[in-house]
């Protein structure tokens, strides 16, 4: 899922940074508006660690394999903390393991961070449906949707970025087929991440419900 150095042309990499910057700024501003911004930091820090290590966990989806991303999970539980958390996590992944790259850090941050913010808003929708569905069911449904759609949106962005940037030296058809294959392999991963988000939210709701309550 991470786009490494040298895959995208320089203009796209710069555009990635240009798009990531306002999202980072907006997220930090939202965080700064909280009563106590440091209150959420332990949670954000731990989930950054989870995000950092998640990409090392490979799940075989024949014929290839995909790895966990957990951006939807971060979005639902951290809210606006998710974007800086993902940025930090991606930075460490690129430096430590060469997973992703520094030139593509902006692109990767947009690809995973923006869907995380979308996931946050999807998860907030549970308050709207609370009356109709009941507290528990609404939380479960929207936790699953946030986890699954956060990842799904990332896969779609990845798909468009890669499919529109195949350099002339490569056989476009073969590469397209490979990209289709990899994107389809993310469908089962959507289910896995959705379920994982649902389980974690259900667990937190039982043991420490204030962790997933609305902030601000």
């Amino acid at each position: 899922m991470h786009i490494p150095d040298g895959i995208l042309p320089a203009s796209v990499c710069i555009a990635g940074y240009a798009i990531a910057a306002p999202f980072a700024w907006y997220s930090l501003r939202q965080i700064n508006r909280l009563k106590d911004p440091t209150e959420e930091l332990p949670k954000a820090s731990l989930l950054t660690a989870a995000f950092f290590i998640a990409s090392s966990i490979n799940i075989p989806v024949p014929p290839s394999s995909v790895h966990l991303v957990l951006n939807g999970l971060l979005g639902s539980i951290l809210g606006y903390f998710a974007f800086p958390a993902i940025l930090v996590g991606l930075f460490f992944q690129a430096i430590m393991f060469g997973h992703g790259g520094l030139t593509t850090l902006g692109v990767d941050a947009v690809m995973m961070g923006v869907p995380a913010l979308v996931a946050h808003h999807i998860f907030q929708l549970r308050h709207v449906f609370r009356q109709k569905l009941g507290e528990k069911l609404a939380t479960s449904i929207f936790a699953f949707l946030a986890g699954a759609l956060g990842l799904g949106l990332s896969a779609v962005i990845f798909f468009f970025l890669v499919i529109t940037n195949i350099p002339s030296g490569f056989d476009a058809q073969t590469e397209q087929a490979a990209v289709y294959g990899l994107t389809l392999a993310h469908l089962p991963l959507m289910l896995i991440e959705g379920t994982f988000t649902l389980l974690l939210v259900a667990f937190l709701q039982r043991v420490k419900p204030e962790l997933i309550e609305r902030r601000g």
Partner: peptide, 24 residues
């Protein structure tokens, strides 16, 4: 080596979490 690097980074994040937890 990779494992140790991963553990070090994770410990960094956990340490950050513990630091802010303790301050609270």
């Amino acid at each position: 080596q990779k494992g140790l690097m991963a553990v070090s980074v994770i410990w960094g994040f956990v340490g950050t979490a513990l630091f802010f937890l303790a301050r609270k």
